Lab assay of single mutants.
Amino acid sequence: CEICHEVFKSKNVRVLKCGHKYHKGCFKQWLKGQSACPACQ
């Protein structure tokens, strides 16, 4: 996960249209302050 830098250990992964992958919880937190993929912006 590019947000928390932890390895994906479960199926709790969100894959965006751009192809980047994040933990669902991390991405949900990210969206509270941002509106785009962290890696693409």
Rank of each mutant, 00 (worst) to 15 (best):
17 K>E: 12
36 A>P: 14
35 S>F: 07
33 G>P: 06
25 G>N: 15
20 H>I: 01
36 A>K: 08
32 K>F: 05
11 K>H: 10
34 Q>H: 11
9 K>Y: 01
35 S>K: 09
30 W>M: 09
21 K>T: 13
29 Q>C: 09
10 S>Q: 04
25 G>K: 07
38 P>W: 06
9 K>E: 02
32 K>L: 08
28 K>S: 15
30 W>I: 09
2 E>D: 12
21 K>Y: 11
18 C>S: 00
29 Q>G: 11
4 C>I: 00
9 K>G: 04
32 K>T: 11
12 N>H: 12
17 K>M: 06
6 E>L: 08
10 S>Y: 04
19 G>C: 04
26 C>L: 01
10 S>W: 03
27 F>I: 11
12 N>Q: 13
27 F>P: 10
6 E>H: 03
10 S>A: 05
38 P>R: 08
18 C>Y: 00
28 K>D: 14
4 C>Y: 00
16 L>F: 09
3 I>Q: 06
38 P>T: 09
24 K>C: 11
39 A>E: 07
25 G>H: 13
13 V>F: 11
37 C>I: 01
3 I>H: 12
1 C>I: 02
10 S>M: 07
5 H>E: 11
8 F>P: 05
27 F>L: 14
25 G>Q: 06
15 V>I: 14
3 I>D: 09
40 C>H: 03
24 K>P: 07
41 Q>G: 13
17 K>W: 05
12 N>I: 06
21 K>C: 10
8 F>H: 03
16 L>W: 05
33 G>A: 14
13 V>W: 07
27 F>R: 10
35 S>M: 14
23 H>E: 02
35 S>E: 14
19 G>P: 01
36 A>I: 15
28 K>Q: 14
7 V>Q: 13
11 K>Q: 12
39 A>T: 12
6 E>W: 05
40 C>P: 03
7 V>M: 14
20 H>W: 00
39 A>N: 08
6 E>Y: 06
28 K>Y: 10
24 K>R: 13
21 K>G: 08
18 C>M: 00
33 G>Y: 04
41 Q>E: 15
2 E>Y: 11
20 H>M: 01
19 G>L: 04
26 C>W: 01
30 W>A: 12
25 G>F: 04
4 C>L: 00
24 K>F: 13
24 K>D: 15
31 L>R: 13
10 S>I: 03
30 W>L: 11
3 I>P: 01
11 K>R: 03
11 K>A: 07
29 Q>W: 04
5 H>T: 15
18 C>W: 00
18 C>L: 00
6 E>Q: 15
7 V>S: 12
36 A>H: 12
15 V>H: 08
38 P>I: 05
41 Q>A: 13
11 K>L: 10
10 S>G: 08
36 A>Y: 05
7 V>K: 11
9 K>W: 01
18 C>P: 00
19 G>V: 01
35 S>D: 13
17 K>D: 15
35 S>A: 13
30 W>Y: 12
11 K>V: 06
19 G>E: 05
33 G>T: 12
1 C>W: 00
36 A>V: 09
8 F>V: 09
14 R>W: 05
33 G>E: 15
8 F>R: 05
19 G>S: 05
15 V>Q: 06
23 H>Q: 02
10 S>P: 05
33 G>Q: 12
3 I>R: 04
35 S>V: 11
3 I>M: 09
28 K>A: 15
34 Q>A: 11
9 K>C: 03
18 C>R: 00
41 Q>N: 11
22 Y>C: 15
26 C>P: 00
29 Q>F: 04
20 H>N: 01
17 K>C: 07
35 S>P: 07
28 K>T: 10
41 Q>W: 09
25 G>E: 14
22 Y>G: 12
40 C>G: 03
6 E>C: 10
25 G>L: 07
33 G>N: 08
23 H>M: 03
27 F>E: 11
34 Q>K: 13
15 V>S: 09
20 H>E: 00
21 K>E: 13
6 E>V: 14
30 W>K: 10
40 C>N: 03
27 F>S: 11
1 C>R: 02
5 H>R: 14
10 S>F: 03
23 H>S: 01
36 A>C: 10
4 C>M: 00
22 Y>A: 15
39 A>D: 05
7 V>C: 07
15 V>N: 05
39 A>W: 04
14 R>S: 13
26 C>Q: 02
37 C>L: 01
37 C>P: 03
19 G>Y: 04
4 C>D: 02
17 K>N: 07
15 V>F: 07
35 S>N: 08
4 C>V: 00
14 R>E: 12
29 Q>T: 15
31 L>P: 10
27 F>T: 12
19 G>D: 07
41 Q>S: 14
12 N>A: 06
16 L>A: 15
11 K>W: 05
22 Y>L: 14
12 N>M: 09
15 V>A: 06
28 K>V: 04
37 C>M: 02
5 H>P: 03
17 K>Q: 12
1 C>Q: 15
9 K>P: 01
40 C>F: 02
33 G>W: 06
32 K>S: 10
4 C>P: 00
5 H>I: 08
36 A>S: 08
7 V>L: 11
3 I>N: 15
4 C>W: 00
41 Q>K: 14
3 I>L: 05
31 L>A: 14
11 K>Y: 03
10 S>E: 07
1 C>K: 03
33 G>R: 08
19 G>K: 07
5 H>L: 14
31 L>C: 09
29 Q>D: 14
14 R>C: 03
41 Q>M: 14
38 P>G: 07
6 E>T: 15
24 K>M: 08
20 H>T: 01
29 Q>S: 11
32 K>N: 11
5 H>S: 14
20 H>L: 00
